[in-house]
């Protein structure tokens, strides 16, 4: 009975997220006015900005999990670290692609090696390495410790990405504030950030469960068949 209640709540949460996502997309694509200079192309902002923000948020979650794991080992923290690294990779890769598409008609180029874009590229490649590390280490405890160490080092890049546009002269514009953006656009942007945040939460929870189940399966194998065990070098 309780199982079924939980199941229904989950379905309701996913449907609610989808509803908010649809409304946010409508505000961004239809309701909000086009930009004075960019025209309709500016509407890419309502997907690009939230996506990249969720990448930074995932990176921060990953960092916190890594630090916590080193102080108090727990499979749950490790599972959340794995989940957040993967969502950082997914949201970052898509968000950067959107930025490149936006860059072509506004900057004139898809890509430039300015500090902001370079540091984001570094973060994405580094998290790809992190996921590879998790795959290549078979002992769950060692994997958890080593990926925590790696995650902490990668996370140094997160504040650098955020502040890069303020610290250095770059092609990428600095963060907008409500004062520099029309109120209608701010409204649409807020809804989109909320929507993508909810999507991130749904993804994180789903991925966390996958990771945790895998961890429990790995650590509670009663007796491995002789010879079937992987040799850990």
């Amino acid at each position: 009975m309780e199982m079924r209640m939980r199941r229904r709540l989950e379905i309701a949460a996913v449907l609610g997220t989808l509803g908010i996502f649809a409304y946010a997309a409508w505000t961004g694509l239809v309701w909000a006015p086009p930009d004075r200079e960019m025209g309709d192309v500016q509407r890419i902002m309502y997907a690009h900005v939230p996506m990249v923000q969720m990448m930074l948020l995932s990176g921060t979650i990953n960092f916190v999990c890594c630090v916590v794991y080193l102080f108090r080992a727990s499979w749950k923290t490790d599972a959340l670290a794995e989940a957040s690294a993967e969502t950082a990779l997914v949201f970052g890769a898509i968000g950067t692609t959107l930025g490149a598409i936006w860059g072509r008609p506004t900057w004139g180029v898809y890509w430039a090696w300015d500090p902001r874009l370079t540091t984001v590229a570094i973060l994405l490649v580094a998290y790809a390495g992190y996921m590879a590390l998790r795959r290549f280490v078979d002992d769950p405890e060692r994997r958890a410790v080593w990926s925590a160490v790696t995650g902490i080092i990668i996370a140094v890049d997160v504040p650098i990405i955020y502040f890069s546009v303020k610290w250095w002269k770059s092609l990428h514009q600095v963060q907008s504030t409500p004062r520099t953006v029309d109120p209608q656009m701010v409204y649409a942007l807020r809804w989109n950030i909320t929507a993508f945040f909810l999507v991130l939460i749904v993804f994180l929870v789903a991925r966390y469960r996958i990771a945790l189940a895998a961890r429990l399966r790995e650590t509670t194998v009663p007796e491995p068949a002789p010879g079937a065990q992987q040799v850990v070098a």
Partner: peptide, 13 residues
């Protein structure tokens, strides 16, 4: 494979 995969990205700057 793993060593360059981990090392190269963070060494870029």
């Amino acid at each position: 494979v793993l060593l360059p995969l981990l090392l190269f990205p963070i060494l870029i700057p």
